[in-house]
Amino acid sequence: MISIQEPEDIITIAIHNILSSRIDDKDFYKHVHDWNKKVVLEIRPFYPVTIIFEGDDIQFSVGEIKDADITLRLELQTMLDIAYGREDPLLATQKGIMEMEGLGDDSSNLVRFYNIFLASMQKVANNPNLNYFELDKKTK
């Protein structure tokens, strides 16, 4: 069972929202389980946050830690464009509007990163449910 730390700031609120939408998803579990990476996410012009994957736990820390494994930097509008399918993540990297470091040549890392972050983001964006009053308290 994946456990995600409760958020305290506006960025981790969003990350929590995105990741927790898949908390009961077996595929998501497979990617998160024992990934054991520290990922820095900077949504500009906000501030960087570090997301720590350890065993089945996902923890947040406001700020950028020095020994991060992976770093992702992008504008909020670029993030929305990717989530809502207006921008391709690969092209965004090539265009330099999404900067990624630390993924290296390890394809399993890339797959995990894509599945945990980008696929989750797109899944939340594509969910037609806007009924905030029917939210599942357990996951939201």
Binding site: I18, A125, L130
Partner: peptide, 24 residues
């Protein structure tokens, strides 16, 4: 100034659907 302007519904879906109650 430092101001971000984005589509509210798009933002709320990613950040928290509960934000929609501020508008609905």
């Amino acid at each position: 100034k430092k101001i971000i302007l984005v589509d509210f519904e798009e933002f709320a879906k990613l950040a928290s659907l509960r934000y929609l109650a501020l508008f609905d």
